[in-house]
Design a protein around this nucleic acid. Structure first.
Lengths: 348, 348
DNA sequence: CTGTTAGCGCTTTCAA
DNA sequence: TTGAAAGCGCTAACAG
């Protein structure tokens, strides 16, 4: 009878090589401490047995796991739907891959205990995608004392916030939408987790996510800059950052406010949906209606949307670095106004 | 002097509650074994100390980690770029979230040791996204003896392949493209990892990925069904499943073969790129040129592309279930031909 | 229902 | 350069 299949351990390897467990251990963790001859014997034995280091045992002993935890909002699957999140996470993935680290997408949902979530894996650091200041999962993560990077804020003690100045950028891009406009409107991100779609006056709105709030503030500022009244500016709040919904919202907007001559969209995803509707209806863009987005996703650039360029991919790389233990440099993140075909020229 | 901060252990909790370690352990793992009174005392002590179970220790002891490993091709960031992968992974994510399991995206790249990759985390099962039969990472995963689900194949001993009959589906959708066509062409996925773009006759092509090969075979079969010659059918091979590249390929195709009257695209992503070009050039679709895709991603449905519906999201759910230990049911996966505006009507 | 004992596989510590 | 011992935090297996 052969032995029942059992995963070989260092002990097995050592026995096979006729050396002590420690020589085997050193061979994998600090090869230089071992003589070349011993090293070779251990390696041969390991190969023959199909030995593989046991990660959990190593983690238990050393205290780190080679994994970083990524937390993306309420629905994990959102990570694969939102184009911004997607770009950001691709950057995170790149750094993890280069460092040979794994990336754990942590499940989050209202009915899961945040503590359980955060503990669900042994993790060396966390990356959060845009969340609310009172996110319990975030609070839980902070108590671990591990490095935490948060894209888009909130800026919280014990974490590193990776974010451009959304307020300034939103102000700048809105200003482009507002050239020659008298009756602007806004299509906005959801303002709270419940995600009720709604229409309101711009002054009446506050948002839970810092990013959303900052962009709203920027838009309000640019309205004032242009001597327009936020209280008179309709704002459609979507239930999701999604181009199909945005298309519906644009329809609703133009039917209820047919004189609208500028649509400020809080993201390119929204702008793409609005653009589809406007094109279908053969609105003259930008002459009759101007349109702006935010984020400069490739498709928006292709379709000539005036928007804000920010490098979410690079931000992902940065965030991953911080989660892996880089000391957070104070490199302030840049954005750039990308003026294209959906806005009217600045009058000289 | 206060104690140096140390993460509290079960022992601390037990001591504080004046009970044994095991009562504390049971309180977390099988609460029913413990009297309500003890449970309450343990919970109170745990809360006060900020106790959190130590995952690695539990993993070391029990042998499972609550994590599943996801392997996506060469570039991890591809997981967040390809719309098909994205739908699939959203499904995986959903099941993981519901089960309270984490999802580890394992880094893979040519210069990383596959063994290291597979070992990079303690994992209870694997999900692979479409890979090649000789993928060394896959081979390594198989040696672990853990459950493995592979979307799109290869179908390999020791794994569960989650896939529709791509050949039959490709044959069916191509047949739609070919109604009334005499000079068809194909725009195809990359055929090998080196991903050289190329143009060739359809007969000359073989592909590394089973999915690609099956779709090619199906297309060839439908050409024969229609008494057309695969050897006369140009096939453009892309370097990436990407609509921008597909748009360029469509341009190249129509410039070099202006009489082309049907374009069979291996995915909706490709079809969307081709459609953009054809629309720009004001080709009459479907009268002058018909067009088909594959996968039924939402945008393709919106734009009226004739395509194959398959539920990648559901396949992701299935794959996750298998990786989490479900016994692979033999539910054969279905697909459905979705006929829309980009193909000519079948002649009666 | 509660407690004791042993040990998961590895690496730190210290000694040879 | 190598080795023996100890123990990381937890839970399976068995008593009581």
């Amino acid at each position: 009878m052969s032995q029942p299949a059992r995963r070989p351990t260092l002990k097995d390897v050592a026995a096979k090589a006729g050396l002590s467990v420690m020589v085997a251990s050193y061979t994998f963790s600090s090869p230089d401490r071992v003589s070349a001859a011993s090293r070779a014997r251990i390696q041969a034995a390991a190969a023959e047995l199909g030995y593989r280091p046991h990660r959990a045992a190593r983690t238990l002993r050393t205290g780190n796991s080679g994994l970083i935890g990524v937390v993306v909002s309420e629905h994990l699957s959102y990570a694969f739907r939102d184009p911004g999140a997607t770009q950001f996470l691709a950057g995170v993935a790149e750094v993890c891959a280069a460092a040979g680290k794994g990336m754990v997408l942590l499940p989050t949902s209202a009915h899961l205990d945040p503590a359980a979530t955060i503990t669900a894996a042994d993790i060396d650091g966390y990356v959060f995608w845009t969340t609310a200041p009172d996110d319990p999962t975030l609070a839980e993560a902070v108590t671990t004392g591990l490095p935490i990077a948060i894209q888009g804020g909130p800026a919280i003690e014990g974490t590193t916030c990776i974010s451009i100045d959304d307020r300034a950028a939103a102000r700048a891009v809105s200003a482009e939408a507002l050239h020659g406009a008298e009756r602007p409107a806004v299509i906005a991100f959801p303002t709270d987790p419940a995600r009720q779609p709604a229409t309101a006056s711009l002054t009446a709105i506050t948002a839970v996510l810092p990013v959303t709030q900052a962009r709203l503030d920027g838009i309000r500022a640019s309205l004032k800059d242009a001597h327009l009244d936020p209280a008179q500016t309709p704002c459609l709040i979507l239930s999701e950052n999604n181009r199909t919904r945005a298309q519906g919202a644009a329809k609703e907007l133009m039917e209820q406010h047919p004189a609208t001559d500028a649509i400020i969209c809080m993201s390119d995803e929204i702008a793409l949906g609005a653009l589809t509707y406007l094109n279908q209806q053969a609105f003259d863009i930008p002459e009759k209606v101007s349109l702006t987005g935010f984020d400069a996703i490739p498709e928006a650039l292709d379709r000539g949307i005036t928007t804000i360029k920010q490098d979410l991919h690079e931000q992902g790389r940065l965030a991953a670095g911080i989660a892996l233990g880089d000391t957070p440099g104070n490199a302030s993140l840049t954005w750039e106004l990308h003026i294209s075909g959906t806005t009217r020229q600045r009058r000289l």
